[in-house]
């Protein structure tokens, strides 16, 4: 009982403080975007420390659509390769359409330390296409992640994307790139039921608080339920399927004003 109270306190405090992450960054299949502490799933451009926990090579594709507007969609692909010394990941994402688009290419390295904690660092090249000059401009940004398992059931995760707040200067404007700090926790009530909380802060946006539950109803099927709050409280639902080495996730968020966001992800573990 005392252990539960402590975990609850840690969870509450870690949920106390961290935004509306820029739409241009790919989301994750974790419910309500609670990916920073999702120790069973590594997603592109989310916490690179989670790359440290993969024990099989994997490749994944993801499509993330905002408000059912095709121009506001982010497509990403990632590939993870484990090894004894370091796990290596390669990620790419594309946001936008022909007249305006942003792309990120990332190479990440992570290591799991005796399953007690994992550290990851990713080097991202962020480039944007400027129609006015018909040219691409870009900047190199680091991403740093950490995950610590305090017990087999409880872990916390920390991730920062573009911590040095690098921007892309052009002839006319300075394109501000998202700089995000995230902190979250994950608690397994049982191997089937997991609860995650997360706080994100993109430095120029509001804080984003998120929480969600994922429940493995059947061996090959799970349901996900959560919510996040920034300006509005947004409800999130999701489903997960497993068939052979394929993992499929379908998530949707219901924004009270702007409509539906959808995410579809497919991953193959070798």
């Amino acid at each position: 009982m005392r252990k539960l109270v402590i975990l609850f306190l840690i969870n509450s405090f870690s949920a106390f403080c961290f935004s509306q992450i820029s739409n241009t960054l790919p989301g994750s299949s974790a419910i309500a975007g609670t990916s920073v502490s999702d120790s069973r799933n590594w997603s592109a451009f989310n916490n690179p420390a989670m790359l440290g926990y993969i024990d099989k090579s994997e490749i994944g594709l993801q499509y993330n659509n905002q408000y059912l507007i095709p121009e506001l969609s982010t497509k990403s692909v990632h590939f993870g390769l484990p090894s004894n010394l370091l796990n290596t990941g390669l990620s790419f994402s594309h946001f936008g359409y022909s007249r305006y688009h942003e792309m990120i290419l990332g190479v990440g390295f992570a290591r799991n330390f005796s399953d007690k904690f994992a550290l990851g660092v990713q080097f991202n090249y962020y480039s944007a296409f400027f129609n006015a000059t018909n040219s691409y401009r870009g900047a190199l940004l680091p991403q740093i992640g950490l995950s610590v398992k305090f017990s087999p059931n409880f872990n916390i995760g920390f991730n920062t994307f573009n911590p040095f707040q690098s921007n892309i200067p052009t002839e006319f404007v300075i394109k501000r790139l998202p700089s995000v700090f995230s902190l979250g926790s994950e608690y397994f009530f049982s191997p089937e039921l997991v609860w995650r909380t997360q706080i994100d802060k993109e430095v120029s946006s509001n804080y984003r608080f998120a929480t969600g539950f994922e429940y493995q109803m059947l061996q090959n099927f799970k349901v996900k339920l959560g919510a996040y709050g920034s300006d509005y409280l947004v409800s999130c639902f999701g489903l997960g399927f497993k068939t052979g080495s394929f993992l499929i996730d379908l998530n949707c968020d219901l924004h009270p004003l702007l409509g539906v966001n959808t995410l579809a992800a497919i991953k193959y573990r070798f």
């Binding site: 840690i10 405090f13 870690s14 106390f16 403080c17 330390f113 005796s114 007690k116 904690f117 916390i156």
Partner: peptide, 18 residues
């Protein structure tokens, strides 16, 4: 809230304050 933990030659510290 401050959390300090160590493992092997690593040590970590998290601070959250409002």
């Amino acid at each position: 809230y401050q959390l300090v933990y160590s493992y092997l030659n690593f040590s970590f510290k998290n601070v959250l304050e409002g």
